[in-house]
């Protein structure tokens, strides 16, 4: 049982970073990288654009996590409760997509980029779900 009480956060909490918007931008970048790679198969694909998109997406993910970690009173218990389970579900779907890549004998640089993109997908989507749930609760110390 939790030792904290929860006070409701206002609908438009001014102290919250734009986690959803940044998360969608990050997902859009890895989707763009995936489309770029897929559109050139099976020819030799210059990896630089895809790597840049992946790196930017990873930076946005890191920035999102850092920005969220600085929010005081965020309902981390609820966040992790939801995000953990969502991560299990999205890891399974990412695994299935990775399986399809491996069955197609995808290898080398494109496989690495697409696998890392799936890792970002499997982390960022659960984070967005956890954030959307937890943003409407702000944990505060229980009154003594």
């Amino acid at each position: 049982m939790s030792a904290t009480t929860t006070v409701h956060a206002p609908l438009d909490e001014p102290g919250l970073p734009p986690v959803t918007q940044i998360g969608m931008a990050s997902l859009a970048l890895i989707v763009a990288g995936g489309i770029y790679l897929s559109a050139h198969l099976p020819e030799h694909v210059p990896l630089t654009p895809a790597v840049i998109l992946l790196a930017l997406s990873a930076l946005l993910l890191a920035g999102n996590l850092a920005a969220l970690s600085r929010v005081h009173g965020f309902a981390w218990g609820r966040f992790f409760q939801v995000a953990r389970r969502a991560m299990l579900a999205y890891a399974i779907t990412a695994g299935l997509i990775e399986f399809a890549f491996l069955e197609d004998h995808l290898s080398g640089g494109p496989l690495v980029v697409l696998t890392l993109s799936l890792v970002i997908y499997a982390v960022h989507v659960p984070m967005l779900i956890g954030f959307t749930v937890a943003r409407y609760e702000l944990s505060a110390p229980a009154p003594s």
């Binding site: 998360g23 609820r78 989507v125 954030f131 959307t132 749930v133």
Partner: peptide
């Protein structure tokens, strides 16, 4: 890709959050 970003970033989180 566009549908995936909208569904994963907006629709699915809203779906879970409203139920919770």
């Amino acid at each position: 890709g566009v549908m995936a970003v909208v569904a994963l970033g907006l629709l699915e989180p809203a779906n879970i959050a409203v139920l919770i």
